[in-house]
Design a protein around this nucleic acid. Structure first.
Lengths: 127, 127, 127, 127
DNA sequence: GTGGTCTAGACCACA
DNA sequence: GTGGTCTAGACCACC
């Protein structure tokens, strides 16, 4: 259970016009999905993350709580927060991300009256 | 230039947790993109739309303003608001919609460490 | 959609040793389950509830967000928060409450080596 | 007074999101109530339990203290900790567990406006 | 040390 | 007016 290196602001791409916690959730979920954060890894403590990312601790707490709901991370009282070792949960999350993304694409295609292939072709047109 | 029939609440699928004007913009842009709203068609007036959709007039105003910016609709003072007759603008909008949608999908694939084909396959897995 | 009368501190039984938001969630969920808060009813605004209950607005916000997750209440941007009109969601919540309660009882019975009937009998013994 | 075999992590079902000592108390109380831990049995020492359960010693200490209060276990300085031989105390504990469990169920029923029988029926509904 | 809750107060977008 | 986010700082229980 190696402790992760501290996060730096550069580790996240933040759009100040959107909720920070939402972007942290998305990007940490992606780190877990692509295996950059391995099962069992200890995440930075709330306070560490808050200070290294120059953000309020409650913002990190909300982030962690959102990731805990679907079981991607687990909190051990007094010990810290860890990436789940339940690889099934991680797999489910990956599939969900994939499905939602594809569903959004299909919805866009449908809404402008195209098939998925037509939409892909249109997106690749020059100009 | 036939006046469009009044909109009814059922004409839009609204999620109260997101900005209403944003959803109106998206859905009207799609109506134009798929040709359901033809070039030159007169849109309901702000007041008409607001009352038939049971929505605040400022919400419709903001919607129309957003659609005017890319030139999808045009307002003639005293006469009303119309779908543009500039079909090039409509074509650009369609391509933009397609490109943004595909770009989002590719970004998701990249973020979880998959190629686009792998992501499509993952999304179609059973279970 | 009648506005509910303001809540007073006496409307809730609060145990200061447990999270307030958790107790608000439980008790409001029960009010909805037993029909005291009818579908479509407008809840007090976050600020109103906070001031009448002498509690911080963020505490009420967390309460409402927890109730929104299972779809028991719905937030309309800029308009307020309402009990859902989706009676199916309310029914599901009722059954869930019942099932969890019974499951807890059965778990207790099992853990001390009794059947449910034996446990009920034991609880009713005099002394 | 046979010494109990050492506890292993598998002997307890732990939810990291709740206080560990609380869960140990509950589960040891249940072991005593159902006779799995017989009167007079010697419990593992604090250090033994802490190391075999991979838990902080203070967690076990708090656990034993909580079990001593109602007289379910007794500590003889220098000799160790034992399940009480006072079978009346064990009986009282069993009844208390049963009563509290039933009281909780009745409270739930009341809070959602049902009788106990209605609640049991609702919990057993299909779907 | 850890996370969890609550407060007070600011600022913003939306209707 | 509404809810939503973020900050700063306090206090607590648990390990």
């Amino acid at each position: 259970m190696p402790p992760i290196r501290l996060w730096k602001p550069e580790d996240f791409r933040l759009d100040p016009s959107r909720p920070l916690y939402e972007q942290f959730v998305e990007q940490i979920r992606a780190m877990i999905a692509r295996g950059e954060l391995e099962p069992g890894t200890r995440l930075p403590s709330v306070r560490e993350a808050a200070s290294s990312l120059r953000v309020n601790p409650t913002t990190i707490m909300k982030t962690y709580q959102e990731l805990e709901r679907p079981g991607l991370i687990v909190t051990y009282r007094g010990q810290g927060t860890f990436v789940t070792e339940d690889e099934a949960a991680i797999g489910i999350s990956r599939r969900e991300l994939a499905r939602e993304a594809v569903a959004r694409l299909e919805e866009t295609a449908r809404s402008i009256g195209l098939t998925l292939d037509q939409l892909l072709a249109l997106a690749r047109e020059k100009e």
